[in-house]
Structure formats: C-alpha cells, structure tokens
Write a protein that binds this DNA or RNA. Structure first.
Length: 307
DNA sequence: GTTAGTCAAGGCAAT
DNA sequence: ATTGCCTTGACTAAC
C-alpha cells in the first residue's frame, strides 16, 4: 500500500499560497509590514485548511507544507512572532482546524526546510540562523500537527566525517520537539544513504530515501539495499517509511540530471518498493497533483494480476 | 493585461 | 578571493 504525497502546492487546483519579499516590505513602515504579513499568513492558513480538505478527492494521503507559509518569519529585520500580527488569533484558530482535519482525514504532514538550514556548518552565523529557522519549522509543525521535519546535512567542507561529528553534537542540543521530528535525506551532492546510515542508526533518526538523488550520486548500495536499510530506520518512529520519487528533466541521458521533470516516468519507480507493506512516497514533479494522478493511473494499468 | 526580472539565507566548482 | 550556478514559482515593476 502506498500513501502518495504532494509537495507544497497544486498545479491546477484553484488554491494558491501567497508570499512576499523583503525588498518589497523594506519600503514600508513596521505597522504596514505587519499588516501585509498578517494578511498573507491568515490567507495561507486558510488555504492550508482548504488544501487538506481537497486532498482525499485527489487520492493524495500526504502533504509537504511549504517553508514559506509564514514568509520572512525568521528574517533578521522583517521577522515576527505570530502574536504580533493583527490576525494572530484567527491564524491560530485556522491551524486548530487544520490539525483536526488532517487527523480526521489521516493526512500525513511533513516539512522540508531548504538549503539554508545547515546544521553541520563550521560558521557560527550559519548555524545560528539554521537553528532559528528550525525553531520556526517547529512552530509550523506544532501548529499543523506535522510529525516530520526533513533535512539535508548540507556541505561536506572536504571532511564528511568531521561534519557528521558536528551534526551529532548539534543534534544533542536540539529541543525535544525537533529531535522527535527530524529526519535526514540523502542528497545529490555530498551525502549518500551509505554516509547517513551510521548517524541515523546511532541517533535513531529516520532516513528519507530519495531514489533520484541516489541515482545522481550513487554509493555502494543497490536501490533495493538502500530502500531496505532506509526503511529499517523508520521502525522506532512507528510510522511507515517516507521516500521521495522524481524523474530527471532531460531524460537519463541528458544533462543536467538534477532538475525535476513535469511527470514521473513509471520506469523510475523502483520495482522493489512494491515489496513494502506500506510506504509514503512524495512525488517531486512539476506537474504536482497531475503527476501523481498520471502515475497512479499508469501503475494501476501495469499492475500484474494477483497470483 | 502581460511579461521579464527578481528574490534572505549556503555551498561548491570554476576562475 | 570572487563569480556564477544550482532551482522554485509567485511577486513586482515595467511595459
């Protein structure tokens, strides 16, 4: 059984999240800034609620919440706590509904801070801003009921072992809410499944297996081996493993491989994934919910009759 | 109304 | 030591 996950937004549904830029806010007074930000956060909390309500009809069981739900929340100048926003109360109420709806509809929520969160950075300022960003992600997680905050390790700085040692130290100092929610994902530049497994096992952190990254940056593990090893790391969390799937934009012979295609080539779905009882698979494709629908249809069509 | 350029943040490879 | 690239899609400003 597969739970299908949508990342951050729809392509064709009439639901859009809003955002803003510091370069725009910079020109306003603080009062105006807060009014603008408040409106965006309120609208986004409403849109999240409507999104969750829409997912079952699209046969989608998981959703990744955009890091930009509260734009510039941790910005050194424009940043804000929710209680400073004129619509703070309404936003909290909308999130209470989101939690209830997600629970009622069994929608699995996750967060994926982007490249700027680097817990292994040797630069103090980068670590500090990364921790601030994670505190924000924890706020989002607690508000929405998300149980997963998925990270890349980030840079290697020419010494992966030293960087991973720094991670272990930083992890030990994180608030419990973050320790309970953090997951680590293999990337396409530095850290493979093979690199991450020792950390994940030692600290009991689930490993989010991205098969596309694994194909771009292989290690000594086969796809079935990596899938199996990653799945093992989820057992202590008592929820099905979370994997990522995407197809390269310019086909496997083209360059660059990294960027995501509009849809998923069914050939890129690892056949060994059918062997798992239950998996959650985020579909990272530009055509969003249309890509999920198309893949579901193709796979149902291909499915072999039961023996 | 349409569209092109822009956007807080890091790291890395190329120069 | 410095620059451009990676990559997202909505926003803004200019037309």
């Amino acid at each position: 059984m597969i739970d299908w996950g949508l990342c951050c937004l729809f392509l064709n549904e009439d639901l859009k999240f809003r955002t803003t830029r510091y370069s725009f806010l910079q020109k306003k007074s603080r009062l105006e800034q807060l009014a603008i930000l408040s409106g965006i956060c309120r609208d986004n909390s409403q849109t999240l609620l409507q999104t969750l309500q829409r997912l079952p009809a699209l046969n989608i069981q998981a959703f990744r919440i955009s890091s930009e739900l509260f734009p510039l929340y941790t910005h050194p100048d424009a940043g804000y706590p929710l209680h400073q926003l004129p619509d703070g109360e309404e936003i909290l109420q909308n999130f209470a509904e989101c939690r209830a709806v997600a629970k009622r509809l069994s929608i699995r929520l996750s967060l994926h801070p982007d490249q700027f969160v680097v817990l292994v950075s040797p630069h103090e300022a980068v670590l500090k801003s990364s921790l601030a960003e994670l505190e924000y992600q924890l706020v989002l997680a607690e508000l929405s009921g998300a149980e997963e905050i998925n990270l890349h390790l980030g840079g290697s700085y020419g010494d992966k072992a030293a960087a991973m040692a720094r991670f272990e130290k930083v992890f030990a100092g994180l608030p419990e809410g973050l320790q309970q929610r953090l997951t680590l994902e293999n990337d396409d530049v530095s850290y493979t499944v093979s690199d991450l497994l020792p950390i994940c096992r030692h600290l009991q952190i689930p490993l989010v297996y991205d098969v596309h990254h694994h194909r771009c940056l292989p290690d000594e593990l086969t796809i079935p081996e990596a899938s199996q090893a990653a799945a093992e790391t989820w057992k202590s969390r008592k929820i099905p493993p979370h994997f990522h799937l995407s197809s390269p934009k310019n086909s496997w012979s083209g360059t660059p491989l990294r960027s995501h295609a509009d849809y998923i080539d069914p050939e890129d779905f690892p056949s060994c994934w059918h062997d798992f009882d239950r998996l959650c698979i985020d579909v990272e494709a530009k055509a969003k919910e249309l890509a999920i629908a198309k893949l579901q249809k193709k796979m149902a069509h291909q499915a072999k009759p039961a023996k």
